[in-house]
């Protein structure tokens, strides 16, 4: 299992941002309480998932799929919206994260490969690097938090259950 500090300082915050950004992009604004609840629960799921994948030797990337599914379920449990809405929000959140990582990783590997050396032994560097690779998520959260922008508007058909 990974260091517990990664959970506290990164996974929970990343999951909270993903929850907020995913929902805000489809026009659903979450309260602080809902953001924190989703962040906490999804952070723990991601932490456990990554640990268990490593223990059972599942291929790298499996944790992303499991986290994707768990975020959809969490949206459903916490916000009680239609599955379709939850799926769209989770997809948008993951697209933001993957785009961010996809853009950042090649640049870092090319120009600063040394930052990845002995990464597992340096929690602080691991956390900072993770935040760096999630820059698009952070920028999106700031933008969506300060504006009323939405990519799609599903509020009319959120269909709370």
């Amino acid at each position: 299992m990974e260091d517990i500090r990664v959970l506290a300082f990164f996974y929970i915050i990343q999951a909270a941002l993903m929850g907020f950004v995913g929902m805000a992009l489809i026009g659903v604004r979450l309260s602080w309480k809902q953001v924190l609840l989703i962040g906490l629960m999804q952070g723990i799921v991601v932490y456990l998932c990554r640990g268990l994948c490593a223990i059972f030797g599942l291929p790298f990337g499996s944790h992303s799929f499991i986290s994707f599914l768990s975020l959809i379920v969490l949206f459903r449990l916490v916000l009680k919206m239609r599955w379709g809405i939850d799926f769209a929000a989770a997809s948008l959140a993951f697209i933001t994260v993957m785009l961010s990582e996809g853009l950042t990783a090649p640049v870092l590997y090319t120009y600063a490969p040394h930052v990845f050396q002995n990464l597992d032994n340096d929690v602080r560097r691991y956390v900072w690097l993770s935040y760096c690779s999630d820059w698009l998520l952070i920028v999106s959260a700031l933008f969506l938090g300060t504006t009323k922008y939405k990519l799609m508007d599903f509020r009319g058909q959120s269909g709370k259950v």
């Binding site: 994707f68 993951f94 697209i95 993957m98 058909q157």
Partner: peptide, 28 residues
């Protein structure tokens, strides 16, 4: 019809997720 729209959007989003995932996976 509203659910159909949602479904169509979700199919497109899932396509994007999968393409990004495969691209990143292959790159790494």
């Amino acid at each position: 019809s509203s659910q159909k729209n949602l479904l169509l959007i979700n199919v497109i989003l899932l396509q994007t997720v999968l393409v990004l995932f495969v691209t990143l996976w292959a790159y790494f």
